[in-house]
Amino acid sequence: AQPRRWPLEKHEYKRYGRQLIMPEVGLHGQLRLKNARVLIVGVGGLGCPAAAYLAGAGVGTLGLMDGDTVEESNLHRQIAHSTARVDMNKTQSAMEYLQSLNPHVNYNRHEFHLTPQKAIQIFEQYDLVLDCTDHPTSRYLISDACILTGKTLVSASALKTEGQLIVLNNPPRPPGDALGGPCYRCIFPKPPPAESVLSCGEGGILGPVVGVMGVLQALEAIKVLTARAQRPANGGDWSTNGATSEAAPKATLLMFSTYNTPQFRSVRLRSRRADCAACSAQSTISRQSLTSGSLDYVAFCGATAPINLL
């Protein structure tokens, strides 16, 4: 006789048992993770640990996007790469590690840097996006593309001894819907002066600092994916977001500072901005303007070569 078909394979009950037995995940949460497609933009200090824990948790499809190759100076913090894989593309290097950790995940490699032209088409293949990049240019672009494709965005950053984390467009709603969570432009309508922007290469970075932020990104992604809310099967609008009130949702910024007391601080930020260029009814940013390349993020953020000032 044919045995009753179980919703998960036998090995999945074993592999994910420690999270399955928790009411916060359970069988329903595990099935949601299995059906979820998550895109990680940037497979560096944030993306490596985030990818490790999302692959571990059994996310069904994990997209890895990065055009860079592994350098020796990455290895103190980019723990999915290895000394033998120096000079290899980062998505390829990370995939070798991730495959050995959990071969049951579908890994998609996007072996290039994100461009406005490609963003919409790629984001539409996923349910949730992690911003693990390192420049304001990409942060605005990723946020705009998440608004236009209706994806929640888990965004983190780190520099020196500090880190920041924020979940944007949560719940995801179309531009003009005040019940959607704020986007990156709601919080930062104008880019910082180019000379105030420091990369990890210039300012330095302590490995576990960016590591903590990346792991927390994976956790926020798991929280969003396993939340009780009902999501339509084919990626349309969310009918309910699990919030009990119909008030405009605000974002929360988590700040980490290694040598501060206390080290972590959570602050309440604003809800959607009524005149936001991306997510308001007056939005000026469209699929067309992205795909055609008419939006110049580099010019918007000023000079590309950051000056080592702050």
Partner: peptide
């Protein structure tokens, strides 16, 4: 009052 500069590194 806290002044926080956004970080962009990763």
């Amino acid at each position: 009052v806290v002044f926080v500069s956004t970080l962009h590194g990763g």
